[in-house]
């Protein structure tokens, strides 16, 4: 197989509140022999909030990020569900609307760039599944997670809107019954836990303005995983991770029940199965301790 090479859009959290996500992304890429060219010029994607304020500006900034991936002639890989949504949505809108694309390119021309629409935008989870292949992961597993029941938490923006997901990725995903993360858990030797909240919202995006709503959604998700005998949760989204890992106190208070489960980033789970050390994967950076590894 030809060596895989991507333009990596890290997003902001990987460089700040979830350093372990950056570490584990790079550790897994090394193990799998995937080359990552980091887009150091990229700006924040706006996280759906700049989009509430200034739609056009958010399109221009995201188009600039994609234009840098295009300059490398590479597919852009995201490691955050919300980065994936906002970047892929920008691509979708510009590719479907020549007039809008021209307006955006008029602005990009000021800095000598052009958005062409030649680079695809995919989440790392699907880069592993679509491009690398689960069978190959299975073959490479040296430390199967066979002792663990692992609850997948998909995160909204990777699976909804499903049209956008299916446009960007080869592996189609049923937003009501997603399977990719379950398949990855099984490939890593773990036992996937089925529970109602696996495709539900963690509440991250209303954390500041509607803390009670956010806390109830987080608490309900952890409780659902717990009640189905999960030893841990796993998510491809650092924002979901922040909610599930750092906000268990408010979540417990909101649902009137003590809840707390270790939460792994998707990359950390794969890394463990492939034999990376806990230090390489940044497990010490979790607020809810991963004390069983």
């Amino acid at each position: 197989m030809k060596k895989l090479k991507y333009a990596l859009f890290t997003g902001c959290t990987a460089k700040q509140s979830t350093p372990e996500q950056m570490m584990s992304t790079m550790a897994v890429a090394r193990k799998l022999g995937i080359e990552m060219i980091e887009l150091t010029e990229a700006s924040c994607c706006g996280a759906s909030h700049l989009q509430d304020y200034d739609d056009f500006l958010s399109l221009v900034l995201n188009a600039r990020n994609i234009a840098y991936a295009e300059k490398h002639g590479l597919t852009m890989v995201t490691i955050c569900n919300t980065c994936q949504l906002n970047t892929a949505m920008t691509k979708h809108r510009l590719d479907k609307n020549a007039e809008l694309k021209a307006k955006v390119n008029e602005k990009l021309a000021e800095i000598g760039l052009e958005y062409k629409g030649t680079s695809n935008v995919i989440h790392f989870l699907y880069a592993i599944i679509d491009d690398f292949g689960l069978d190959k992961i299975k073959e490479m597993v040296v430390k199967p997670l066979s002792q663990f029941n692992i609850a997948p938490f998909y995160g909204c923006h990777n699976i909804r809107p499903s049209e956008l997901h299916d446009e960007s990725h080869k592996q189609k995903e049923n937003p009501y019954n997603p399977t990719s993360l379950d398949d990855l858990i099984i490939a890593c030797g773990g036992k996937n836990v089925d529970y109602e909240e696996k495709n539900k919202c963690c509440g991250f995006h209303v954390e500041l303005q509607a803390p009670h709503t956010a806390a109830v959604l987080t608490g309900t998700a952890i409780a659902g995983a717990t009640d189905n005998n999960a030893d841990m949760m796993v998510t491809p989204c650092p924002l979901c991770h922040l909610k599930l890992d750092t906000q268990t106190k408010s979540a417990s208070e909101a649902i009137g029940r003590e809840v707390s489960l270790p939460v792994l980033h998707m990359q950390q789970m794969v890394g463990l199965a492939l034999g990376c050390t806990p230090a390489e994967l940044g497990l010490k950076h979790h607020v809810t301790e991963v004390n069983f590894i």
Binding site: C12, T13, A42, S43, C44, H49, Y53, L208
Partner: peptide, 23 residues
Amino acid sequence: NNVATRHAVGFLHSIKRNGVLDE
């Protein structure tokens, strides 16, 4: 001018200053 609107506008200020977000 409340926490929700400032949260949206805050992204602009952060991006203007750093390109990335200052969480």
